[in-house]
């Protein structure tokens, strides 16, 4: 088990390196000069050159690259061009907001999705089944930013039940709409998957055996069927974490949420290279860690899987 984890982590190193390198290449060929953006509209070429030198942008590309890799190995992601904030600090403060959003969205999605999926499977072809699956497929098909706007229109601007956009730590009212917006898609996917897995499991022999032994239906479903049906569901939760981070870019933009996603978009527009690299590397690491956790958690759910 331990060696498996170590191996997986070692395997992540070249992937991270690839991500880092691609970001670096993209940022060297992207038009738009960060020094220029710092100067604003009117720029004196000489000052421009000095700012570029100060940022290390006048070095040959390969030197910039090796310098960047060296710093990265030391855990130093640099300092934002735009506001002098240390990239690591910025990520830490913003990640809190993103994490809270993503976590509650995932909790909501898992609870709602599994519940709806199980009930749909047990009551297959019922009205509940049809309407739940219709809502689910609509949820998958609607653009996340539009869902957010629709919720704002209804609950904030029309009914005035929630305050609208913004982020006030500790004030849960500001969390409701962004969490729902971000949670809709994973909830829908989880519901659909849970339903189909449950249907498959419910036809298996051991369920029939369990039923024939006279176990109560609820116990059959909860203890036997659900446990087995959950294995693929856990996978999808893992992959959803990655999608959630991508979706967070739009959700955070709409709800003016000071998270990593919005930070990344702002950095890209401002050509704030250190911040762009930082956010992308950070998100890639989160993605890989989430996948690793999914892999490991298989072992707990399904003892048949061995790590060798």
């Amino acid at each position: 088990m331990f060696s498996y984890i170590v191996r997986k982590m070692l395997y992540a190193v070249p992937v991270i390196w690839g991500v880092v390198t691609i970001v670096f290449i993209l940022m060297t060929i992207v038009p738009g000069d960060p020094a220029r953006l710092m100067m604003g509209q009117r720029g004196d070429p000489e000052t421009l050159a000095r700012i570029r030198a100060d940022l290390g942008l006048d070095l040959p590309i390969h030197k910039q690259y090796t310098r960047f890799l060296k710093d990265l190995v030391k855990g130093d992601l640099g300092v934002s061009y735009r506001n002098n904030e240390k990239v690591v600090d910025a990520l830490m403060t913003r990640f809190g907001a993103t994490l809270k959003l993503a976590f509650w969205a995932m909790v909501l999605a898992a609870l709602l999705g599994i519940l709806a999926g199980v009930v749909s499977a047990v009551k297959q072809y019922s009205i509940f089944d049809y309407s739940a699956m219709f809502i689910a497929i609509s949820g998958i098909s609607a653009p996340v930013f539009w869902v957010g706007l629709l919720l704002l229109l209804i609950f904030a601007y029309t009914l005035h039940l929630v305050p609208g956009v913004g982020y006030v730590p500790g004030d849960w009212r500001y969390f409701i709409l962004p969490v729902i917006t971000l949670g809709v898609r994973p909830a829908a996917l989880i519901a659909r998957l849970t339903r189909s897995c449950m249907l498959e499991v419910l036809t298996q022999d051991y369920i029939r055996t369990a039923r024939s032994k006279g176990l109560r239906e609820r116990i059959v479903i909860m203890r036997h069927a659900l446990k087995n049906a959950l294995i693929p569901v856990v996978t999808i939760i893992g992959t959803q974490v990655a999608e959630l981070l991508s979706g967070a870019v739009l959700t955070e933009t709409i709800f003016a949420w000071p998270g990593v996603g919005r930070l990344a978009v702002e950095a890209l527009i401002a050509r704030d290279f250190p911040m762009i690299r930082g956010t992308v590397i950070f998100m890639a690491v989160i993605f890989l860690v989430a996948n690793l956790i999914v892999d490991i958690s298989y072992g707990f759910i399904d003892p048949r899987i061995r790590y060798d």
């Binding site: 991500v19 991508s246 992308v280």
Partner: peptide, 9 residues
Amino acid sequence: VVFAFPFLL
């Protein structure tokens, strides 16, 4: 590598 990237970004 491409999978590890946040898609939209």
